[in-house]
Amino acid sequence: MTISFEEVEHVALLARLQLKEKEKEKYAEHMGSILQYVDKLQQLDTEGVEPLDHILPVFNIFREDQVKPAPKREEILANAPLVEAGQYKVPKII
């Protein structure tokens, strides 16, 4: 299993990770070797095996529809890098 430079770039874009050229090479190599290792799974016949998406035999966990007072806005915004008018400020979208 090898992974191309272009695939690394595509995945990095999906994951919002800016990679340097050197890093792209390194990740291509490392991801390739891990993917080669996990390819071992393909040896197993899993036909008809139900995927285990929740380990606990637990269903219908609910809370009641009750409002609790929100924390102070200052507390919520205290860790924000940039705030204006009680809102998070971010650079332009496009």
Partner: peptide, 26 residues
């Protein structure tokens, strides 16, 4: 993050993530 993004990305989900969940059952 890269590895996980790749494993979930379009076209690979069944071969990787879904397969892993089945193996998890075994």
């Amino acid at each position: 993050i890269m590895l996980g993004t790749y494993a979930l990305s379009s076209g690979y989900y069944d071969a990787y993530y879904l397969k892993a969940l089945k193996v998890r059952r075994l």
